[in-house]
Design a protein around this nucleic acid. Structure first.
Length: 404
DNA sequence: CCAACCGGGGTCTGCCATAGTA
DNA sequence: TACTATGGCAGACCCCGGTTGG
């Protein structure tokens, strides 16, 4: 009798497992097909195949020794649920092991909730794999949080896209009161709804910061504006946030150090520094201090090696502070390549924006221009950084003039 | 018509450390 | 004391087009 029951149970188990396998297999194949058809990123193919293979090994393992050495501390329902959802358990466990020891989790509610907002099953699996603590949130709490985000962002789909990109930003905190206070605070300093939307889209973490942390950064920037003799320091703060939506997820330590570095490196007076950091230089305040120093040092050395003066380097970087973003190798490679192609260093200094273009763009454009008979050394090199349409129109013209 | 100048838009997560909490 | 919430860090460009003065 007992044997009969146990074999029936085993049969059921195997049938269930076969069911999983079929579901996973078809899902994987469907995913692969879609990925090939749509030409989307290869990792999805790899990802779904991996999940498929893992699900096979897990289920086979489960059938073979299910009762013998299952770990009592682990919630099997949870594991089963996550597997059917396509979550990568290995990644999830590695990321937040504590979640797997909980007696109560809400993975199915979370899935239902996200499905109702238009997220695909694949996206949900990816979200939970990368931020498993998401499944400890209740529908009620999620719904409230979602509605607060919707005060800033116009559509559910846009929010889904942000969650897919950065699940942590949404799920790391369940403190909805704090989120609401943040929104109110950012409105109160005069940020427009457009700016707020950009902030949440670009740097969603801002909204999970504690209100206090955001206030500290705003105060910090306010003080900087004040100390630099700004007439309207709050306007200065708004300008920086508008120019650099990532500023509120940086530490005040980093931002202060970068501002100090810019001031000392370029010996700027208050007014010049003010213009720089709420203008072209706003973006580079995010950089890690060491990275900024290292890159600036490299730029200086590289340009010195071509006989540039200190003043020329200064002018170059101040006209185009974004150059500090460029990693050493990329900067050096671009300069070397341009020089190799008979562009002079003074031409580069006069047109720093040519370094905006990727190496590929520089290479293909220079080849086309040279082939068309354009002399880079004596002509304007700004074409290298023009938009595609303007560049192509120009190239066409060059071809007809020089070809004739 | 042209080029020079200028500003804008997209993008920025995933991990670790640690104080706080249940 | 296991787990959570939160702060902080490293990492690292490319492209488009409006305006304007000649």
């Amino acid at each position: 009798m007992l044997k009969a029951v146990s074999s029936t149970l085993k049969c059921q188990c195997i049938l269930k497992d076969l069911g999983y396998l079929i579901i996973m297999a078809s899902r994987s194949l469907w995913c692969m097909r879609n990925n090939f058809l749509l030409g989307s990123r290869c990792w999805m193919v790899q990802y779904s195949t991996e999940i498929f293979l893992k699900s096979i090994s897990f289920r086979l393992f489960g059938v073979k020794c299910g009762n013998v050495d299952s770990e009592p501390s682990e919630n099997e329902d949870l594991l089963n649920n996550l597997f059917t959802m396509g979550v990568d358990i290995d990644i999830a466990k590695k990321r937040q092991p504590g979640v797997f020891n909980r007696t109560v989790t809400n993975e199915q509610d979370v899935q239902m909730f996200l499905l109702s907002k238009g997220a695909s099953k694949e996206v949900i699996a990816s979200i939970i794999s990368r931020y498993p603590r998401a499944i400890t949130r209740t529908t009620e709490s999620l719904s409230k949080r979602w509605n607060l985000w919707r005060k800033v962002i116009m559509s559910d789909l846009e929010i889904v896209n942000i969650l897919e990109r950065s699940p942590e930003s949404f799920f790391r905190s369940k403190n909805n009161e704090n989120l609401e206070k943040n929104i109110n605070f950012l409105c109160s300093i005069g940020l427009t709804s457009k700016c707020l939307c950009r902030l949440l889209t670009s740097a969603p973490r801002t909204f999970s910061n504690s209100l206090d942390l955001n206030k500290k950064m705003v105060e910090c920037l306010h003080e900087v504006g004040l100390s630099l003799g700004c007439n309207d320091p709050m306007d200065f703060v708004r300008k920086i946030i508008f120019k650099n939506p990532f500023i509120l997820i940086q530490s005040t330590k980093r931002v202060k150090a970068n501002i100090e570095f810019l001031q000392s490196a370029f010996t700027l007076n208050k007014e010049e520094l003010l213009v720089l950091i709420c203008g072209l230089g706003a973006g580079i305040l995010d950089l890690s201090n060491d990275y900024m120093r290292k890159n600036y040092k490299n730029i200086k050395e590289k340009l010195f090696s071509f006989g540039c003066t200190e003043e020329e380097v200064r002018k170059f970087v101040l006209n185009y502070p974004d150059v500090i973003f460029l990693a050493e190798k990329k900067f050096n490679d671009k300069i070397d390549y341009l020089i190799e192609e008979k562009v002079s260093i003074s031409q580069i200094i006069e047109n720093p924006r040519v370094l905006d273009s990727s190496m590929n763009t520089l290479k293909s454009r220079i080849k086309e221009l040279v082939d068309a008979g354009y002399n880079l050394n004596t002509s304007n090199i700004a074409v290298l950084s023009w938009s595609k349409t303007r560049y192509q129109a120009k190239l066409k013209k060059i071809k007809t003039v020089l070809g004739a």
